[in-house]
Design a protein around this nucleic acid. Structure first.
Lengths: 332, 332
DNA sequence: ATATTATTTGTAAACGATTACATTTTTACT
DNA sequence: AGTAAAAATGTAATCGTTTACAAATAATAT
């Protein structure tokens, strides 16, 4: 492999000049720039990243720690982050924490070892509770999950508002005993639950909430018990795509038709929500935008470490489908 | 930050000894080992990875270049790869090529720059056609996609066989004019098409195939034309999960009920295939296993660069559901 | 006890870039 | 033309490890 000194020799300049040209620095004459570029081309020279990183003490790498890569929300966020990162000549190290605080800690340690320029993190609830930005030697931008207490850059959905609007929609459609099943491991689930509670309160309705681990199976089991128990909800809401999936499974098992026998709505406009007849009413998240906004915020923060803390809140969009149409016996 | 010389000083040994202990080398007495470990602990010493990589010329990093991260198949494969890699103290750089050969080339270059220990690649068709393992300075293991010509380690489904079995299943259920819609960008789609063709041939049936870009929309449009055209297929098959999704959308648009008016089957047992009444018959891929087998193969190859080329073929599992039940007018 | 070998330790030279600083060349101005 | 200032270039130190090699110590055989 060609080294910088070989390139320098061929171009008839010093290694410093080669380095300067490649770094895009000014203070190098156009003539030498051309000769260097030509030599680089001719020898197919590629700088050794390890050497560069050692000397420059920068890695131009960002870490992306997602809670659960199987959740399509995070898949799409990752895609956006990756696209933008590589466009900005940054590398991405992707880690999947599986909603496990220990894994999160492990990966955050790893990011320190890798000396990354910054990290994007969607923290589990325990991690978020203890999270202090100053504990880390790199900028951190939270995505999808944060709370009022944490002072860190973040990009999130308007969780409480969206849940509020979704709940109001159900109420307006005539549902009264609406049950809210939400993921207990994330701040997001909680905030959506708050929006639901607020909406129910404004109409003087009794709340019926159930926290579960954020998995399809857990949601299915919880929903099964709910619909077969003595509480008789007339509608179910799920706080995210996985949970919503579990709810549908439970309704299928219980042979309950929606919206005829029970209403249904939830978060995340996944492809299948349109296919399950007559379609499921959801709050759609602008997932790609969220990812894009997050990496942009991180890059800004890296460029300007002392700029004030920012929180970007994106609005969810209500998509009405058949699962929540007005009840025949509605009495508003 | 503490450096190795600080640790050495505190432990009262040379830097070489510290390095040896940390590398897990033999030839160091238990007493010094303890003192070093103690000092490392006390000072919270973390070796500088850039320096280590520069000197040792190894990165302990593998690259994972997937064709489309939105495809749940690759999500699950990534998960497995990541799990296993970190268990073996390896890092993973994940790249999403979006079925774009140029992006693939770009990322493969990047892998070279990063001096990775090895790469896992699911190549697009053009890349696969030109692929020669000796063009790369690192081991490459193909996943999901390879053909008879390429001599590289690979982990794949028994695509042709699975498609054959799935087609035979439909034929046995009484379907005759079966159309096969498959992704044109991957070897996988083609091989599955072959299996379909073979199965049709053994029963003397006419084939009806349609190659499309591997997206939901492309599949939907192609299927719409098919079912509304003059060819009158009595069943549709999709070569993967995204395409299958497009088929379902097309049938919904055309208001065609399955299996009553048209049969349906495809690849990938995605969560929603159970939910769309009465369930869709699919070939389930052992996705996590595939990922696991792939990274294991890569690690082996890294450890033994000259071992003979291996191809691991995993068997797909036919899951019969309502979308392919026997036609009333079946005349076998 | 001494010679020989095996083991453990230490010293110093890499690894391949970036960059501070010194030096040379060019430009601008009197 | 001569000088000061600015710009371009080059030299060599540096980043923090690993590891080849030399040196010291311990173990074994005579």
């Amino acid at each position: 492999m060609a080294q910088i000194k070989d390139v320098a020799k061929r171009a008839g300049v010093s290694v410093a000049s080669v380095s300067r040209v490649l770094a895009g620095h000014t203070g190098v004459t156009e003539a030498t720039r051309q000769r260097v570029l030509e030599a680089v081309q001719a020898m197919d020279y590629r700088p050794d990243l390890a050497a560069r990183r050692l000397r420059s003490r920068r890695t131009d790498t960002v870490g992306l720690i997602v809670s659960d890569i199987r959740n399509p929300f995070f898949t799409e966020v990752s895609r956006a982050v990756e696209d933008m990162a590589y466009q900005n000549r940054m590398r991405v190290i992707l880690c999947n924490a599986d909603e496990n605080p220990e894994k999160e800690a492990l990966y955050l340690d790893l990011m320190r070892d890798e000396n990354v320029s910054g990290v994007i993190l969607s923290p589990s609830l325990p991690t978020l509770a203890h999270f202090r930005i100053q504990d880390y030697p790199f900028p951190v931008v939270l995505v999808d999950r944060c709370d009022r207490e944490t002072t860190a850059d973040a990009v999130v959905l308007d969780n409480t508002d969206s849940a509020y609007r979704l709940t109001i929609h159900l109420i307006e459609q005539g549902y009264r005993r609406i049950a809210f099943i939400y993921g207990a491991t994330s701040a997001t689930g909680r905030q959506r639950q708050e929006g639901y509670v607020t909406a129910m309160a404004t109409h003087g309705l009794e709340t019926l909430t159930q926290a579960v681990p954020a998995t399809v199976d857990a949601a299915r089991i919880a929903a099964s018990e709910l619909v077969q128990g003595s509480l008789f909800p007339d509608a179910l809401m799920g706080s995210n795509g996985l949970i919503l999936l579990g709810l549908v499974e439970a309704l299928r098992e219980a042979r309950l038709q929606f919206p005829e026998q029970i209403g249904l709505a939830g978060f995340d406009d996944l492809p299948w929500t349109r296919l399950v007849e007559p379609g499921i009413t959801v709050i759609a998240q602008p997932t790609y935008d969220i990812g894009q906004a997050t990496i942009e915020l991180l890059l800004q923060r890296i460029a300007h470490p002392s700029q004030s803390v920012r929180r970007v809140v994106l609005r969810g969009e209500l998509r009405e489908r058949g699962s929540s149409v007005r009840r025949k016996d509605a009495t508003l």
